[in-house]
Amino acid sequence: MIWQIDLALFVALIAAALIALWVRNLLTAVAVLAVYSLLAAVLFAGMGAVDVALVEAVLGAGVTGVLFILAVLATTRRTPERAQVRRRWTIMPLLAAFFGLMLYAGTGLPPRGDPEAPVREGVAPQYLERSLEDTETPNVVTALLADYRSQDTLGETLVIVTAALAVALILRRDEEVEL
């Protein structure tokens, strides 16, 4: 991807995140978060991760926004008043230190697309070479998720179902059932 476009997208991404934190009206924050997700989806697509980009676009920029709006309407539209200034002085250095740590760790990562990267040793090349022969599936990502690593996918599905069940059990209205 052209680095100027990458840079502009990253700047807009960070700006969207900061605006979402800064605005007091929560419905505005939800709208800005949808913009953030769409920018993230474009960045994922630029890195060649089209499957992740698709999920980010439909979930992050789509359905999550609807669910957030429902949650805001069911509770309150405005953020509470800011915490005391003193607490900010303890939180800010911690955040700055964590940010520095992340930047420092980022310098140790291999460059994007590096064929010598540790992640491309082991079983990864075999998946890439053999998935079409093994599963007749041209999309390696799908062959990985639904065949080679389908136990992981089963676990993810169970996580989603458990989360939805927990939400339903905690938040459902059952006025007619009195215990």
């Binding site: 089209v50 698709l54 041209p138």
Partner: peptide, 8 residues
Amino acid sequence: GHYGPGGG
């Protein structure tokens, strides 16, 4: 999902 981005 077999042929391009997508899936369940």
